[in-house]
């Protein structure tokens, strides 16, 4: 690893969907206070990877806009925003969510 890379470019890096200031590494399964230098499990979140993911799962989700992304055109619009690869499971969500229907 030549120059230093921050871990927010890693596909394990995600944020809480409701509180984007809570930063999480899904690989470690813990809150990482803020982006730090990439560890050895770093996997680069490249444009190609996002495209591939979009094509396979059919959607991505822009956490900053709280909107699903269904195609490349939309992805391009959200290019500079935070699009996680994976969502961690928030264990308390079910205790917090109201009954809705």
């Amino acid at each position: 690893m030549g120059e230093s890379v921050e871990c927010n470019k890693c596909l394990h890096f995600t944020v809480h969907p409701s509180y984007p200031y809570i930063v999480i590494c899904v690989d470690l399964g813990q809150v990482v206070a803020q982006p730090r230098e990439a560890c050895r499990n770093y996997v680069s979140k490249t444009w190609d990877r996002l495209i591939k993911q979009l094509s396979e799962s059919g959607f991505l989700y822009c956490v900053e806009c709280s909107r699903p992304i269904f195609n490349e055109e939309e992805l391009r619009k959200h290019k500079t925003e935070f699009i996680p690869f994976e969502f961690f499971t928030d264990e308390v969500a079910y205790e917090e969510a109201p009954s809705g229907d």
Binding site: P17, S57, G58, F59, Y61, V63, S66, R67, P68, F70, E86, F87, A93
Partner: peptide, 14 residues
Amino acid sequence: NDWCPGCGDFGIVA
């Protein structure tokens, strides 16, 4: 769309 982020429903609608 107010489904939970990451919900499988997004895949279905996609």
